[in-house]
């Protein structure tokens, strides 16, 4: 009766129930889409149409001026620089932090599954717990240490912070992925004389594509969206995008340019949204792997 591939639960539902289910799902789709849609519509309206008009109405006059302003001339803090320099800061922070934490996580996962030693589970448990600590507990000493090593208020300082507190998750991903990988293959290569790094490059790495993508997406999203570390440790010149956006939106001087705020918010959301649209499948896998073992 049913096809060869039977995914969902074969519940018998009547027409009324199904209509209700569809309505319910569509209603929630609207709920999730509403804030983004409102921001998009209102980011291409002149300010007069927002304050006097209906937020759901399409613009009478289409304008991309708010986008230009958010990007290159809006007042952030004291400088009328727009969000561009902060967007660049975020990229300068995210790219090295993601690369370093992913590489270290891959090697850690490899050691913890294929070169096991006494006490490795305890070490991993400690590393895992460090993913979930409230970062408030490290803010005070971290500020001191960054000052002591001369990285306070700098981009390299933020890279260090993100690498250190990202290692738990990257290690978790690779450890779970590699634990399903046959250890016999590693032992056989060892008997043939292959060393630690050769086994990693030749045997494990070529098969690690999916988990590398999952890890990169996870780290990219988390670091790009970070606000606490950025607002605690960045200087005026090294602020990431989220902190700059918050400054733009919360600034109390002058008229609130809502259309510019929305354009700025979308600019801040764009990189992670694009990653999500392009690779949603891996994004979901990453979220799941971060919550459930395996």
């Amino acid at each position: 009766m049913s096809g060869a591939v039977d995914t969902g639960v074969a519940i018998r539902t009547n027409r009324v129930t199904r209509t209700f289910i569809y309505l319910f799902l569509l209603l929630f789709a609207l709920f999730y889409l509403l804030p983004l849609a409102v921001m998009l519509i209102n980011s291409v309206k002149p300010l007069s149409e927002i304050t006097g008009g209906n937020m759901m109405a399409l613009p009478n006059v289409w304008t991309f001026e708010p986008w230009r302003e958010a990007w290159s001339s809006a007042q952030i803090g004291v400088q009328p620089t727009g969000l561009r320099p902060y967007f660049i800061n975020s990229i300068l922070i995210v790219v090295p932090a993601v690369a370093i934490s992913t590489i270290m996580g891959a090697l850690n996962g490899y050691v913890l599954t294929k070169w096991r030693f006494r006490g490795d589970t305890i070490l991993f448990g400690m590393l895992l717990f460090s993913c979930f600590i409230p970062f408030q507990i490290v803010l005070i000493p971290m500020a001191r240490v960054l000052g002591m090593i001369g990285l306070a208020g700098s981009v390299p300082g933020l890279i260090l912070v993100h690498v250190v507190y990202g290692l738990g998750f990257t290690t978790l991903y690779f450890r779970n992925y590699y634990s399903a990988f046959p250890t016999e293959l590693v032992r056989a290569a060892q008997i043939d004389g292959a060393g630690f790094f050769r086994i990693f490059y030749r045997i494990l790495l070529p098969l690690s594509g999916p988990i590398i993508v999952v890890t990169i997406i996870w780290q990219f999203t988390n670091i790009w969206n970070d606000f606490l570390f950025g607002s605690s440790f960045a200087g005026q010149a090294s602020q990431p995008m989220t902190v700059a956006l918050n400054n733009l939106v919360q600034s109390s001087t002058g008229v609130k340019a809502y259309n510019v705020h929305f354009a700025g918010a979308i600019l801040a959301a764009l990189p992670t949204l694009i990653v999500y649209i392009v690779s949603g499948r891996f994004f979901v896998r990453g979220l799941m792997a971060g919550s459930v073992k395996g």
Partner: peptide
Amino acid sequence: FLDQKIRGEGMLRPIFLYPMALSFIVTGTA
């Protein structure tokens, strides 16, 4: 509900999920 062999599941799922990709600052602004 999504598990009831829904038409357009592939469309709905990403719509339900995309907010998770956003920064809380963006969510708060909106």
